[in-house]
Amino acid sequence: MNAMLKKEIRLSSLLLTYLFIGFGAMTLVPGYPILCGTFFITLGIFQSFQSAREANDLVYSALLPVAKRDVVKGKFQFAMLIELLSIALMLLCTLLRMTVLKDAVPYTQNALMNANPFYLACALLIFGLFNAIFVGGYFKTGYKLGKPFVIHCVVTFVVIGAAEALHHFPGLGALNAFGFEHIGLQLALFACGVLLYAALTFVSYKKACADFEKIDL
């Protein structure tokens, strides 16, 4: 673990952010739009960013013997750490729903989205969009958090709505597969989610480095 990520964990983050990883367990809540858990996880990350801003964190970091892009990298790494820990928890819960709980009535009689690899792909897409819109957006000014977070909220709930609705369209029922049904398609969709997450995060990181170089602290 590099020094900047350690600094993020020890000085810049809030305990609340780590506690909010627990919202990944909402994957197990029956009859609930389970993708909403991802929103709460990003809300936790937002809280740490807000607290760090009030502690003059960006200026402190920029004064350390690091390049300015390392300050950006630290913030992205912290967001990714929380997101990937959350995905690990969601994966565990998804595997439970796909195996031992696959015939549980509360899940089989569920009009909403199932926990399956497509669900994890959607979660990764939301996290990727959060990195692009919120984390990347923060580095446009180095202090404005509200606007990028509001845009992130709107986009997230559009994605959640679309993901919940898709499997109701004719021909798209396989998106809501139970257990290991349509596993080839499901894994391909998961791979797409991973690629989208990586691409959105990487592109926004590059842009944030360029933006942060230009702003005055």
Binding site: R10, L11, S12, A55, D57, Y60
Partner: peptide
């Protein structure tokens, strides 16, 4: 800097 962290923590980092 980091008004609610201890001086010890800030130095350590």
């Amino acid at each position: 800097w980091y008004p609610r962290k201890t001086i010890r923590e800030i130095i350590a980092v």
